[in-house]
Design a protein around this nucleic acid. Structure first.
Lengths: 251, 251
DNA sequence: AAGTGGTCTAGACCACTGC
DNA sequence: CAGTGGTCTAGACCACTTA
């Protein structure tokens, strides 16, 4: 039988009900929802319709399905990322990686660290104000917290600034690349972060092991020297469900 | 027939193909994809499977379906929002961006403007450091650009700061509420913006007329006076597909 | 081995659009 | 009025998890 004309779709009403039950603690974070076949029987709908309701919840980030096991209620425990605090000059001098600062007491691990020496990608070349054919260093890595991939980052540095420093090595040394740039007299004085939020590509979903329908934040940070030259461009993809972003600025 | 064991699902392969064709210009922005029944026939699958492929594209923001008309390819023409424009114009000059966006100044129109006088919501009360029972002014509005709803905003001001000023009126006067606060000696000197990105609730989808599976940016801006008191809290919901957010800050 | 979510089929009626 | 996307049914097999 087709559904009667009129109000909201059945799958939406079932989803609303489950959403409410997740909200009021009937299904607390970490718990399992009834299987789709049981929901179908309880609500008197076809299994496909119950599936759509569950899919809606999954697509809103409420739940995570594990095949063979069940549909689990997710919780949101974000990493607080304060851009200004992390990049303050004082903290680079202390020999700490900027990434240590805001992770509370959770372990943050960089994996899949790579250094490449390649021609600048078009947009990066425009930002760095160099020719596309010119070589840059690309330092890429993925960050993992509590076993969960939360971000992929790729940093681009013009060759003439990186040459002869530890920026070209896997371990860039205490304080990271900003400390190296500063030692060489190229310390950045200003930053710009541009962000957009969108649904991930298939590659990003695979790389960060994103739950279905989790958005990503695509961020580009550029670091500028006193004379106005951009000395580094950092392109990042963040699992949006894992981050709370904070910016402070004067009026 | 159930599908053969092995590689990616059919609907995913069809989606990949369409995604590629959107990318290479076979279906340019604004064009219409073949109807689901035709895709089903062409690909030799059931209509439901073709539908899943189209649903995947829609869920990634590539397309927008108009019932009765067809599935249209979307384009991304974001509003560039520079949180601290003063810093930007003074120190960065004309902005270079990785994203190729026109920085045109389209007019933002405020609609559905409302002023309420109500007890502070719990989180707002905590931010403003007042009792939950205490009254605050809530100024809410929706912003529309080119006929499209892009943001909903709700600003909260403690009663003792707003009383006797035009902050309590629909038209808060030239310069907006910050000018009024400044006149009263309460001018903010610092801002903080906290952002998270997530899938919208059903209410938000309805309110902003969001395309299916478009993420939102949930933002909370607080304005701080010289003595440290927070004089305003502004809660915003942005259609993520319409915004490019920019933050400048010193090292 | 039983149960679960993921995929798929082959139909159907509805509300809406555009001619 | 023909065509479109949205919803729904009642089945089916698969790969996987759990015990």
């Amino acid at each position: 039988m087709p559904r009667q004309s009129g109000e909201p779709p059945k799958y939406q009403e079932i989803a609303d009900k489950l959403r409410r039950q997740i909200g009021d603690g009937t299904y607390p974070p970490g718990s399992v929802l009834p299987p789709e076949r049981e929901i179908a029987k309880l609500e008197g709908v076809a299994v496909g319709t119950a599936r759509r309701a569950l899919a809606a919840l999954r697509d809103e980030g409420y739940t995570e399905a594990r095949v063979g096991a069940g549909v689990y209620v997710r919780s949101w425990q974000p990493i607080v990322r304060n851009a200004n605090k992390r990049l303050r000059t004082a903290q680079w001098g202390e020999g700490r990686s900027i990434w240590d600062v805001d992770i509370d007491d959770r372990d943050l691990v960089a994996v899949d660290v790579q250094i490449e020496h390649l021609p600048a990608p078009a947009e990066v070349a425009r930002m760095l104000d160099v020719d596309e054919s010119q070589l840059v260093y690309r330092r890429s890595r993925k960050y993992v917290v509590d076993g969960v991939s939360v971000m992929r980052s790729a940093s681009y540095i013009p060759e003439d600034l990186a040459r002869g420093t530890r920026i070209t090595q896997l371990d860039s040394g205490p304080g990271g690349i900003y400390a190296r740039l500063r030692e060489a007299g190229y310390g950045p004085v200003k930053f710009r972060e541009e962000l957009r939020c969108r649904m991930p590509t298939a590659d990003e979903t695979e790389d960060l092991q994103l739950a279905a329908a989790t958005p990503v934040v695509e961020m580009c940070r550029s670091a500028m020297r006193a004379d106005g030259r951009i000395v580094e461009v950092n392109r990042m993809i963040l699992d949006a469900s894992r981050y709370l972003l904070v910016y402070d600025f004067p009026a």
